[in-house]
Write a protein that binds this DNA or RNA. Structure first.
Lengths: 219, 219
DNA sequence: CTCCTAAATGAGTGATTACTCACTTATATA
DNA sequence: TATATAAGTGAGTAATCACTCATTTAGGAG
């Protein structure tokens, strides 16, 4: 899969098909790279055009404004990042085998998202940075979380609580703790200390064991 | 303590005394507010001047460049935010009473920083946002962490491991897990869902118990 | 009061910004 | 080949940017 095909499927986030011209793909590619490096507000359209090897006018042929370019990058990115966290098949798979533990579920989630993040670090940086300043982005992220992620997660947690497999705290607390642990690990791994030596398999394993049993010994 | 005195002691982070004129305090106050809201790059000096009720030239009398204004806000902020995490008195206090548990140490840390963050949310936002784009800020944060926070933390963790109070994983892993749990809670509490209803005492308590014993039941 | 110095001002500057538009080039269909 | 439509161009534009500087104001010492 070449770069353009890759962008194609990133931008067409499951919805309508949009054909990308080669120059359009170049623009997206350049914009993602520079937005991630310097931030949206500090990036000029002339810089994007230069890096993409196109005329500045070409950007505005495809995107009415600079902000529309940002949105067209980030919105599909949010969907691709969040929705597979609890894809339908994913959860039902876990529920089918009731014997499977919460630990198994977590291991699947973390491994599942690890690879995606690894391949989309610039995109992840843009999402984290720009959600803070653009209310629509924050809203669309919250909507996805509230409607698609949380209910599935809540269902799983409630079930596991009933089965006595996890502690009886409010689901929101357990979900928050679980997510900050996973997201905290991924952010540390790829954004804060990417150049450190990581034994990913070991670290994922220890992280999940700490999440399950805490940092007390003899669990 | 009025606002100017407050800024005074924020900016003079333990080092040399710098006298702030009233207008200078107004400038800092306005800059912190707008930088937090829109981001450094998207904020114009004319906007800061207007909000501060001063002429634009006044900003450049005190700060050579817009970036110098940012640095003079963020650098003392980083110090005030991070250093007390493991202030000298703080750790020695814990080590004196050897019977005290890791749990007690965590409870002190989290309560200690909770109040500071609550009072400095805009400052915290600026630090989180701008560290990503300004290498010097990232460096100064890393230096403080490596030289002042990590060694103390490592010392404590190593001691607790020896005493068999916490699990025998690498210190770096335990510290990372501990910090992402605390920071993740604080960021969720104040930045992601500040408008939700929080029972802070309960949530701190549950967070620490999950950190210690995990989410398995019957700990 | 006079003098001195630091603080404050705001009109002005060149550079850069996002965006436009008249025009050219490429592609597809018949 | 002829025609239509979409893609691409780049010079041009008004607005805004960070920053300067000659000048005025404020406050304290003698």
């Amino acid at each position: 899969m070449d770069k353009q095909e890759y962008l194609q499927q990133l931008i067409n986030a499951g919805e309508e098909e949009i054909e990308l011209t080669p120059k359009q793909a170049k623009i997206l590619e350049a914009a993602i790279e520079i937005f991630a490096e310097k931030g949206y507000a500090a990036t000029s359209t002339s810089e994007i055009a230069k890096k993409a090897g196109v005329a500045e006018g070409t950007i505005f042929r495809h995107y009415k404004t600079k902000k529309e370019l940002l949105i067209s990058i980030v919105t599909p990115g949010i969907i691709k990042l969040t929705v597979p966290f609890f894809a339908n098949q994913f959860v039902s798979e876990v529920f089918k085998e009731k014997s499977e533990s919460y630990e198994q579920l977590l291991r699947k989630i973390i491994r599942n998202r690890f690879e995606f993040v690894q391949k989309n670090i610039p995109l992840l940086k843009i999402i984290l940075q720009e959600m803070a300043f653009h209310e629509e982005l924050k809203q669309s992220f919250q909507n996805i979380f509230i409607k698609k992620i949380f209910p599935k997660f809540d269902e799983a947690v409630t079930q596991f609580k009933k089965d006595g497999l996890i502690v009886d705290y409010p689901s929101s607390t357990i979900i928050r703790f679980t997510m900050t642990t996973i997201i905290g690990f991924i952010i540390t791994r790829f954004l804060i200390l990417p150049e450190a030596e990581w034994d990913d398999e070991e670290e994922i394993d220890r992280t999940i064991r700490m999440l399950m049993h805490g940092i007390q010994p003899d669990s």
